[in-house]
Design a binder for these strands. Structure first.
Lengths: 196, 196
DNA sequence: GGTCTATAAAGACTACAGTCTATTTTTTAT
DNA sequence: ATAAAAAATAGACTGTAGTCTTTATAGACC
């Protein structure tokens, strides 16, 4: 982690590009901003831009990755005595609020609709999966959840509900609220829609 | 439906473009084919292409819409005495097989990852939603399903499971089988993952 | 301190989806 | 038949993401 002068300068360039780009995106929207514009305003060059980022959308991915701070913060403030189910529901709802209010629909849609950046969502080593797996394990151990599925399968099911809900947020014209939608979705998944 | 000579000719042009494009896509893959190439091979022009299709990906959307034939066929062969749950499960599984084997991952991914064409998936007037709503209504009436959700909400939940599963098919590196995944997903949604 | 190498940055260039204007072809009205 | 209007098609042109080649800069080694 001990950087020499050259590396420090490069990092400063990267930061300048990132900040300029995010600034422009928030001013005019992702699709209204060109890479040429970012490069011009940040006084860098195409070479510098693509040396630091693989694509225009990767800028958003970088921003999106800050979500790990959100998860950390969330875990800290969550009362431990809640049921595992309640923890997962609160995680999901709080997360949706964060994505909706702090990151915004355009950023999320850009990541989700881009095959390259969307791959990151499938990385089962990201914080989200670890947290989910913990709560699920706790739930299974306490006998709250079925053991018909493995922890990994359950994490996949829950996280898929999140992805499905977010995806629907992007594609439905009539403005869908991801917070309300994830709540309904999870209610169905936890209790089931069958009568017994 | 009575076309004059001009309209008939235009339709022939459209058909020629469509067939040439699909042929090329299947030969080299969607991303390896350019509109210029389609236009050249079909002996038409950019003007003709964009007169008939709003975008390159709309070609795939056109092909995707044939799915209604699949749904019709499916409904015809489905035994009526099955439970509503069983009907929905069979619909989902058979559909996934169709998407995977007949349409293919690239076509589906192209539609799903494209904001313009993805809007079509959100059209609640497509055949899929009507069929789902029928089965769900049948299930609610027979007392198979909870009435905590409206038919429309249930259709949204089930179809979102489908979309989420397909989306995951696209983004996970390690080849996911959408047929197996939808089965697990629905098992969870029908029975719930909570122990009671 | 000079040469050699590796990394960063510059910016010209390419590829390609989609637009725009011009031209041809067909229909309609007289 | 002929002029005017409408529709379809041709293909030149534009915008922009991303690549490629060149140049500058800094560290390393003698």
């Amino acid at each position: 982690m001990t950087l020499n002068a050259k590396q420090k300068k490069a990092l400063k360039t990267k930061k300048r590009i990132l900040e300029t780009a995010l600034e422009l995106f928030s001013q005019k929207g992702y699709n209204q901003v060109t890479v040429d514009e970012i490069v011009e305003k940040s006084k860098t060059s195409k070479g510098a831009f693509y040396g630091h980022f693989a694509s225009k959308s990767e800028i958003f991915l970088e921003k999106f990755k800050e979500i790990d701070n959100f998860y950390d913060e969330f875990c800290k403030t969550l009362p431990n005595e809640l049921s595992a189910k309640e923890k997962i529901i609160r995680l999901s709802i709080t997360q949706m609020k964060y994505l909706k209010n702090d990151l915004g629909k355009e950023l999320m849609q850009t990541i989700y609709m881009n095959p390259q950046s969307a791959k990151f969502l499938a990385d089962t080593n990201r914080r989200l999966y670890h947290i989910l797996e913990n709560y699920l394990q706790e739930g299974q151990e306490k006998g709250e959840f079925t053991k018909d599925f493995s922890i990994q399968e359950l994490a996949m099911i829950i996280s898929r509900c999140m992805r499905g809900t977010l995806y629907d947020w992007f594609i439905f014209e009539k403005e869908l609220d991801p917070v309300i939608e994830i709540e309904k979705m999870l209610q169905a998944v936890f209790q089931g829609i069958e009568k017994y």
